[in-house]
C-alpha cells in the first residue's frame, strides 16, 4: 500500500510535469462549453453565414436543456474517447520500451501495484476531466437555455463514466501487452467504434453491450430516466473492466 502510494504520487507528478493534468481537462471543458453555445447561437451563426438567399427565414426550435447535455455527451463519445485513448496508450508500453519498468520492478515492488497505480491515476484524471466538461456544459446550458436538475446530470455522467472506464481499462490492458503505441490506440478505438456502431444496429442481440450505457446515459439526460434494461449492460461492463484489469496486472 505504501509503495503503491509512492508509485501513485509519481504518476501524478509526471502528469503535472508533462501538463497532462491541464490539457486533458481543458479539452473536455472546451468541448463541454462549445456544445450549448453553438446550439444556442446556431440561428445567428446561420444568418451571418451570408450565403442565404434574401428573405430566408430560419426557424430552429431551441433544444431542451436535456438535449443539449445529451449532445455534449455524444461529442465526448467521439472526441473524448479519442483524446483519452491517445493520452493513455503509452501508459505502460512507453515505460516497458524505455526500460524504466525494469528500473522500477527491480525494487521490491509488485507488478500489480505498479499497474494499479497507473490505472487509478488514469481513471481519476479521466473522471475529473469528464466531470469538469459536463459541469461546464451544465453551467452554460442553465445560463443560455434553462435549468436542469443536478441529480440527473450526475447520474447520466456517472453511467457514462463506467463506459469510459471500460475503454480506458482496455487501453491499459493493451498497453501492458503490446509494444507499439499506434497499434494500442488503433485497437482501443476500434473496440469503442465497433461497439458503438453494432449495438444500435443489432439491438436484439446486443442488450448486454457496454455501449448500451451511452444510450442509457443519453436517455437519463433527455427524459430523466434510463430507457430499457440498464442493469444488464452495467453488470457486464463492470465484469469486463475487472477482467481486463485482472489480465493487465498479470505479468506477461
Amino acid at each position: 500500500m505504501n509503495k503503491w502510494l509512492v508509485l501513485f504520487r509519481k504518476e501524478w507528478l509526471e502528469m503535472v510535469r508533462n501538463y497532462k493534468v491541464i490539457w486533458l481537462p481543458l479539452v473536455f471543458v472546451v468541448f463541454g462549453l462549445l456544445q450549448p453555445i453553438t446550439l444556442y447561437y446556431l440561428p445567428d451563426i446561420l444568418k451571418n453565414a451570408g450565403n442565404m438567399p434574401e428573405g430566408t427565414v430560419i426557424k430552429i426550435a431551441t433544444p431542451s436543456s436535456g438535449e443539449v447535455l445529451c449532445e455534449t455527451l455524444s461529442q465526448f463519445n467521439q472526441m473524448g474517447i479519442l483524446v483519452i485513448v491517445l493520452a493513455f496508450m503509452g501508459i505502460v508500453a512507453a515505460e516497458r520500451r524505455s526500460g524504466m519498468m525494469k528500473m522500477i520492478l527491480v525494487k521490491p515492488v509488485t507488478y500489480t501495484s505498479y499497474i494499479l497505480s497507473k490505472w487509478v491515476s488514469a481513471l481519476l484524471l479521466t473522471f475529473v476531466s469528464l466531470s469538469l466538461g459536463m459541469l461546464a456544459a451544465w453551467y452554460y446550458t442553465i445560463l443560455l437555455i434553462g435549468s436542469f436538475p443536478f441529480v440527473d446530470l450526475a447520474q447520466g455522467t456517472g453511467i457514462y463514466f463506467i463506459w469510459i472506464s471500460f475503454l480506458l481499462t482496455f487501453t491499459l490492458f493493451l498497453s501492458s501487452r503490446l509494444k507499439s503505441s499506434g497499434l494500442i490506440a488503433a485497437l482501443a478505438l476500434l473496440l469503442g467504434i465497433v461497439l458503438s456502431l453494432v449495438t444500435p444496429l443489432l439491438e436484439k442481440w446486443m442488450k448486454w453491450s457496454p455501449a448500451q450505457l451511452t444510450g442509457a446515459a443519453s436517455s437519463l439526460l433527455t427524459e430523466g430516466a434510463a430507457q430499457g434494461n440498464v442493469l444488464l449492460p452495467l453488470t457486464i461492463t463492470i465484469l469486463l473492466t475487472a477482467l481486463f484489469l485482472y489480465l493487465a496486472v498479470r505479468e506477461p
Binding site: N2, K3, V6, L7, K10, L13, E14, R17, N18, S98, G99, M100, M103, I104, K107, P108, V109
Partner: peptide, 21 residues
Amino acid sequence: PVFFSWMNAVEYLVFMGELSG
C-alpha cells in the same frame, strides 16, 4: 540505465529509495 527525464536527481533517488521501503 534509464530515468525519468522530468525528475531531478534528488527526486529520482528519493523515489527509488521509497520504492525500496
